[in-house]
Design a binder for these strands. Structure first.
Lengths: 246, 246
DNA sequence: TTACATTTGTTCGTATGTATA
DNA sequence: TTATACATACGAACAAATGTA
């Protein structure tokens, strides 16, 4: 049974917000998957019993939040990380002259573990809960520039194997979508400066003690569900973290 | 004479975009200043000869771009940096436990100079063009944590004096608005890691060679007019640069 | 406190334009 | 060409917030 919706039982008092949340709920329930088209505006107005204007306002917000994409003449689609724009929305590392490039990714480590305090806080789970830890080394122009130490909760990534990670054809977040039905729609990042240690020296080839940009990232899905905790270390000799507001 | 607008002579073919740009033009022409209320929707529909829906869609975009703020029952206002939210939109330094706080600012240096290559590129002016350079030291919880080396083009800040900067009651961007009629609506930032030098040691009290977060910022106004170039150096021992997307 | 005018916010619905398959 | 889908434009009616008399 699809998600039913009764405008009369609206809680918020603001109809388009209720419609938005109903769509979000259907999305979280897996009714439509990433990359798929959702029903037409006409069908959705029938389903939710609202006017076209109200429905559009609801979807307007979902589009503004990068959860959906509209294409005139084709339909409205659930956002995917396959799209180039979407990838560079979360991957903000550029060459200092502004050049953008897809990184080459090498899986350096993979293991099951129990969440430490830092991971538990970031992922909103308990200390000791099972997690997967893996490390990627990212290269630009053939040179390693960043180490990603990634932690994901086992509860949400049950069947994850090293082989899958090594052989995934697309981006990591696209992989989360395709295999686990997980949509990363929001990230929070905290940036600090740090000195390179032995590990950085080994993986990036930088001297111990050279300055690195440290990026702590928490990735979330709908309803602020914590999906991934990531600590990155970037060699900023030739590259940097680029940011634009708004 | 106020900006006239003739829907019949619309260029873009999309009416609400024309209305938006007409409003933006009136704004840039100084018809309404920061913090002021603009005419009611009814008056603007009369002026531009469009329907309420079209006008609202135009203003929707201006609000989404943080150029205007709507208040139900009061009116629509030109955005100001006085508002707390607005300040923390551009000031992203927080304590590592998430605590936010207004910084105390001390003007450490001020002088007229000629733009070097880096400043010229950032501000889209010619090398050698006159600029003002000044340095602020920002403190949080009474401890200096960041140095801001700021460059602004003299052409846009004719009468700027050290005294004004030292005595400004509000935030810097608010000062730009009040005294020079300049609205900062967009910033672009690039983050790198660097090692502390003698100057950092003197102003921040950190050891030479300790890691600092280096932030290069270009602030722009309407039509991408470059307003300010700023190179910041942050001690990330207890603080960090926080970022949320979307 | 109350009543009222003003302003933005929400919801409705229709008509027409434009892009796509 | 045709059907479908989203985009734009219009405007009416009512709700909610605000400031003032």
């Amino acid at each position: 049974m699809g998600t039913q919706f009764d405008a009369g039982s609206a809680i918020g008092g603001v109809l388009y917000k209720d419609v938005k949340h109903a769509i979000l709920a259907a999305l979280a329930a897996g009714e439509w998957k990433a990359g798929e088209v959702i029903p037409s505006e006409r069908k959705l107005t029938d389903r939710f019993g609202v006017s076209i204007g109200t429905l559009r306002k609801a979807i307007d917000e979902l589009v503004a939040e990068n959860i959906m994409i509209r294409h005139q003449g084709r339909g409205t689609f659930v956002a995917t990380h396959r799209q180039e724009d979407h990838f560079f929305r979360f991957f903000r590392i550029v060459r200092q002259d502004g050049h953008r490039e897809y990184p080459r990714v090498r899986l350096a480590r993979f293991r099951r573990a129990k969440a430490d305090q830092e991971e538990a806080t970031a992922l909103a789970i308990a200390v000791g809960d099972p997690v997967f830890r893996f490390t990627n080394v990212l290269s630009l122009e053939g040179k390693p520039v960043m180490i990603d130490a990634i932690t994901v909760p086992e509860a949400r990534f049950k069947s994850l194997t090293e082989k899958q990670l090594r052989e995934r054809p697309n981006t990591l977040y696209n992989f989360y979508q395709d295999i686990f039905g997980i949509n990363v729609i929001r990230i929070e990042e905290h940036l600090r400066s740090a000195l390179a240690n032995e590990d950085d020296h080994t993986l990036l080839g930088v001297p111990v003690g050279s300055p690195l940009l440290k990026i702590l990232r928490i990735a979330s899905s709908f309803h602020d569900e914590r999906i991934e905790y990531r600590v990155s270390r970037l060699d900023t000799t030739c590259h940097e973290f680029a940011l634009s507001q708004p």
